[in-house]
Design a protein around this nucleic acid. Structure first.
Lengths: 140, 140
DNA sequence: TTTCTTGCAAACACTTTGCATGCGG
DNA sequence: CCGCATGCAAAGTGTTTGCAAGAAA
């Protein structure tokens, strides 16, 4: 199972960086890998099935930690809903304007633009975020 | 002056669509054209110099109206700060990760990616948002 | 044992809503 | 003069903080 491998790497990363590998953190990270671009609320509800006493505070704190470690990217939206993405590679977030579903799209053209941009700005670009709004099949 | 032309177009657009051209709305729209990617607070403070009695409520309501009319794009960020962009054409928001300054970058490569994406998704894409994080000259 | 983490409650910032007054057309 | 727009106050939402109790190493 893919997430198992990630899980162990994750625990190692935490310890290496001086953080404790708590079951809550592991569960939150696994949820991020399993779900696609979950919201805070989605993560919270998922975790609560396994850890009924978990708090929203812990979810927020853990997400901040993961962002600091560079393991997730937080996508802020204008309707206040934040989504979290474990895909760090150059890609496009394909977002349905109706239902809000997000899927990743990777191909050479994205790579090319990113390469072009990096050259244009003397290799200074550190991160990116590309969103494209496309009605999904269900919503059409 | 560029904004004068925009101003009249704006008034016309409002009336055509059945909305009233109030001085507050005009001032808010002019602020959007003058400032680069202002926040709600920036717009509010700017408007207050000319209309000391203006309320934040009106600023929010007007920004929503402009977004509905397709005249501005709201850029939500993970730190909760929203910025507003009157540039509707395909472009990249070049954002400084330190100071948060945003400048637009347009060139053929962005157009090309957009064209490619539109073809790939059968012309369904409706909007986009491309952000690139690049430390600005001052912050380097 | 020691230090970091959790989870509760309260505080917070930003945004939205209800409603009476006011202004645009 | 009619109806939408404004602006105040209050409510709402999502997120953060302070702190005592608990768990990881």
């Amino acid at each position: 199972m893919l997430s198992t491998m990630h899980r162990d790497e994750f625990i190692k990363t935490l310890r290496t960086r001086g953080y404790k590998a708590t079951p809550q953190r592991i569960a939150i990270y696994e949820t991020l890998l399993e779900k696609e671009h979950p919201s805070v609320e989605e993560i919270y509800e998922t975790i609560k099935k396994r850890f009924p006493s978990v708090s929203l505070t812990t979810v927020y704190q853990t997400l901040h930690l993961l962002a600091d470690l560079g393991l997730v990217i937080e996508l802020g939206f204008s309707d206040k809903s934040a989504r979290f993405d474990t895909n760090i590679k150059p890609h496009i977030n394909v977002i349905c304007p109706s239902c809000g579903k997000i899927t990743d799209y990777e191909d050479s053209s994205v790579q090319e633009l990113w390469t072009h941009i990096r050259q244009k700005f003397a290799n200074r670009p550190v991160t990116h975020r590309f969103d494209v709004y496309v009605p999904c099949d269900q919503c059409l």
